[in-house]
Amino acid sequence: MLIWIIRRDLLLAMRRQADVLTTLFFFIIVVSLFPLGVGPEMNILRIMAPGIVWVAALLASMLSLGRMFSNDYLDGTLEQILLSPTSLPLLVLGKMFSHWLVTGVPLVLMAPVLGIQYDLPFSALIVLTLSLLLGTPILSLIGAIGAALTLGLRGGGVLVSLLVLPLYIPVLIFGAGAVEASTAGLGFDAHFSLLGAFLLVSLVCAPWATAASLRISIE
């Protein structure tokens, strides 16, 4: 069932490729805005790069949260999913995973290119990519709770940012912190360990919380 729901969501995403590309281009545009606003001073940009890329990744991932459940909610698929005998947290986990494949992975792949724009050294580029690889799944996992709670509400898009962004802050701090530590020549193991811990905790807790939220939203 897990494989089935992942395949179904990926197929849907492939049929609506524009949605996937919009998120990616949003990410690229936000990151490109900062040099225009701050000025093309490479020394400043190099320091700011990890934070900017991470904030842009947070926003891009959050913007795509609305699509996670809303289409299924509108066409009635979600009700069928809720009625299915398979455990709901498992199905929700599949939806989270496909959300990450569709929005998180393109961001991870794009990040090194954007890092080059900011003149990050090679080692920092690797750390940036790895930190995003470890961090973006957390964004999909936590974001799903907010997406499920705001399902079908008026102004759901703005509300989801209010609910989810405060919970994203630790990921931002340690994700960007890892890159900063590596450019400063310090060890970044601790940051990665904490990101990994966040990932494991949210992997265990978020599917349950999302399943409960979906039941609340649909009853």
Partner: peptide, 24 residues
């Protein structure tokens, strides 16, 4: 507070708020 304010049905608002409070 804004999640609860956005939901018209008070029982749903209670439960949705509870989930976000517990996560926080």
């Amino acid at each position: 507070m804004s999640l609860q304010a956005a939901i018209d049905d008070p029982r749903r608002a209670d439960k949705a708020g509870a989930v976000i409070a517990l996560v926080g």
